[in-house]
Design a protein around this nucleic acid. Structure first.
Lengths: 206, 206, 206, 206
DNA sequence: CATGAATGAGTATTCATTCAT
DNA sequence: GATGAATGAATACTCATTCAT
């Protein structure tokens, strides 16, 4: 009898990791939600940490692919490339909203294993952005700015909708899971890019 | 003379909640770090959740006080008031870096109790910002914009340094715990305010 | 050509039973060491206990054969026969050092199944020794002694090198796996026979 | 409510370790036999291994005390001293028959932790015997012999009654737990000492 | 005030075994 | 013959909490 347990486990795990956190999720919770035997998790992923690692690496590999697919635009125009990268990241994050939120949160924990996995990917991401910024400044499309601070502001804005969904829905009454929100929010971030990163642009927010 | 157990417990708890998350921190961990008997925590705060509630409410009461102390500026100038509020929040967050990070993270979890406590405070915060924005738009200092989106972007930027300290230090090599960073980062956020929120301002980032 | 799984399993099992004990050895350990699939063990031996039974019976059948091959000497001389039996046992034990040690140890456990298998064989062994002792005392070559006590002393000495190899190597710095040791140790036991069992003999230890 | 759990746990553990082996004994088994909650074992001894360590060290400390109490006799006569040491060991082993058997068996396993504890004690024991043998040979009471081999034979005989009680009772029909046996068996070992270790003695076994 | 003993539910993980293929 | 998937019971251990002292 085939049950394709592996996939079921992953979906259940991601959902629970997101809502209850890694430490707050028990292997039995996952097994119950996936309708499988808890031992199966050990069978496929060795242990709870193995399952986490699997989720993280697959997420980040796709994440980097998104960025990489936008890089060729760099030759044409750094600012167009930067905007495309931001768009790709934002839409990818919205496509896997559970993992995106989970990662944004869990990254701040002290779990050595988790951070080790993530920092390799983030190193790559930083490198890509670095190239874009350098290129943009050389060709005069970008202002002369410290990329680090811009990155923090940018990543903060990119993370926020996933970080605090309750705040957004319950306090602000905006619904980030709707397609409309993604498009609208992208506009705002790009406006910030125009205003804070690019040279001589007029800001216009509808 | 007996040590002041209650305070010691809180400091230990906040530190551990921050680094290991609430679910990942055990009462014994806290007791060990505070050098007291685990039963004492039950004695002072009833249970683990009681300890958490205590930490949250004291944090948020001070947090709101910060905002409230800047509100009188509103009559004079909405934009000055907004900037002062932002400054107050940012500096307060830096003054209790552990709790700030912990809250930013834990807020995204599904823990009903935690969210209930926090949303009352955030409702108040939202109200204060609403007043500022309305006033600013009425008096023509602010653009006509949807406060909700601006709030998301703003809170994202205000949270980022606490959310992802490892990313910032290890990947970007910037050190948010230094006073210098707070000042510098404040400047960037205020520039964003100038560009995206205020009417007819020239952006200038050093 | 398929590998000869059955043999590989047995060798792996004996090695692990010896070093980690029966209860301490898992079927997966064995499968890993034998480089086969765990299900195979169930296939060949039904279950873990079946594998154990197989190992025990083959060992003891060979063990008894050793004794039986020396028995014809009895007619000629009981003392010569006894010595030959001891020599045979000792050398056989050294030839399968892992199983020998394992049995000496596991025999003292409360596992009913294991003991049932073993006691049939030991009953036979006891009978053979009984015949030798009776014959030896009748023909005046042996002292008048209670065979039981002599048996205990004898078996104790025969078991010791396998029982406590660490004690012997690490504390006494003697190496029982070397051929030299077997020969030397045999001499000592035979001397004890001369002194304690046989009539009118002069003891001589080099 | 006092239950003096610690002692109860130890007695139950020793009994079960003896009959089922360390690996074959579960913490629940012990708790059930001791009529306490399994968590209590963790409370008193940290974990299963901690419980084992406790049992071993207390046993061995008493064991060495027995030997040490007989050492002063050395000045008077090495052979008397050796015999007294043997007597002390044998009687001590009979006084804690469960632990004695357990140790004899478990010592041969591959558990690093266990062996580390035991070898320190056995090193001391070896040293004491070494002193006795050297002294005995110097003063001409002992033959010139290699102490190592004599030690192996001696320890083998001292261990045997504990090692294989089923063999002894069921096959040989002798009952080692009776006081009578201890006395009788001691006689036999001392006879072996007379014959194999001491100089110019006439062997006499009743 | 403070603590050590004790508990029972809960944790992740390992186990021998089964079964369809 | 042989294997990978799956299971359920059992494993050691941790947890927050209670309670008598």
């Amino acid at each position: 009898m085939r049950k394709n347990s592996k996939e079921t486990i992953i979906t259940a795990a991601v959902l629970l990791f997101n809502t209850k956190g890694f430490a707050g999720t028990s292997i039995r919770d996952i097994a119950a939600k996936a309708n499988i035997n808890p031992s199966n998790i050990g069978y496929y992923f060795d242990n709870k940490l193995g399952l986490l690692e699997h989720c993280l690496t697959t997420y980040f590999e796709h994440y980097l692919e998104q960025i990489e697919s936008a890089l060729p635009l760099l030759e044409e125009s750094p600012s167009a490339c930067l905007k495309r990268v931001i768009e790709s990241i934002l839409y990818y994050q919205f496509s896997d909203i559970h993992m995106s939120r989970f990662i944004v949160r869990e990254m701040s924990l002290d779990s050595q294993t988790v951070r080790e996995i993530m920092s390799t990917y983030y190193q790559k991401e930083k490198y890509y952005f670095h190239v874009i910024f350098e290129n943009g400044m050389e060709r005069g499309e970008f202002r002369k700015l410290s990329p680090a601070y811009a990155m923090i502001q940018l990543k903060g804005q990119l993370s926020m909708p996933f970080l605090n969904p309750h705040y957004i829905t319950e306090v602000l009454h905006v619904f980030p899971q709707e397609r409309y929100f993604a498009e609208k929010y992208l506009e705002h971030i790009l406006s910030w890019i125009d205003a804070a990163v690019l040279e001589n642009k007029q800001v216009a927010i509808s």
